[in-house]
């Protein structure tokens, strides 16, 4: 067993895990954060996307001990008690998710993109979502929603909007 200590959504968490455990399983099984999904376990689908030290990562491909001492942000860390994250709000309003299984991963990819590039072109958005497969939506409403956020249409916290 290996001891890992990492920062998850702003909180320091510790777990003792088998060395072969992936970050995805650590989050889901040890910490109960089931937002990131297991779609393929081999880095193809992006359902397990989380942000580690500011960069998107397929958490099924990262071992938990590799995340030791790092900052991990999952979809559960985006919203607060008072408000949805603007991307979540935009995804809701645009109807960007259908079955929703890809959603947490897509939203994390979008978040990493907008943090780095607040005004992305459609091409840049497509590029940022290239690692996230969705079988339901055809992506167009996700792209529209991300554009909305970039334009600031959705900067308002949900609790305060009319």
């Amino acid at each position: 067993m290996t001891k890992v200590t990492l920062n998850v959504n702003g909180e320091t968490r510790t777990a003792s895990v088998p060395p072969e455990m992936t970050l995805l399983r650590l989050l889901r099984e040890e910490f109960g954060l089931t937002g990131a999904k297991l779609g393929c376990d081999v880095g193809d689908c992006g359902a397990c996307t989380v942000i580690v030290d500011g960069k998107t990562v397929n958490s099924c491909l990262m071992l938990a001990p590799q995340a030791d001492g790092r900052d991990v942000l999952t979809v559960e860390g985006l919203a607060t008690m008072e408000r949805l994250h603007p991307i979540q709000k935009a995804f809701e309003e645009k109807g960007s998710l259908q079955c929703g299984f890809c959603g947490p991963g897509v939203i994390m990819s979008a978040k990493a993109l907008l943090d780095e590039n607040p005004d992305p072109s459609v091409l840049e958005i497509r590029d940022a979502l290239a690692g996230n497969l969705c079988r339901c939506t055809g992506y167009s409403k996700m792209i529209e929603a991300i554009q909305d956020v970039a334009r600031g249409d959705n900067r308002q916290p949900v609790g305060e909007s009319a």
Binding site: E76, G95, G103, P104
Partner: peptide, 21 residues
């Protein structure tokens, strides 16, 4: 119309419980 789903907020929050969750 813009079709939204009543359950899509939970999807976006990562709160929807699929079997594996």
């Amino acid at each position: 119309q813009r079709a939204t789903r009543p359950d899509c907020r939970l999807h976006g929050l990562g709160q929807t419980k699929y079997i594996d969750d």
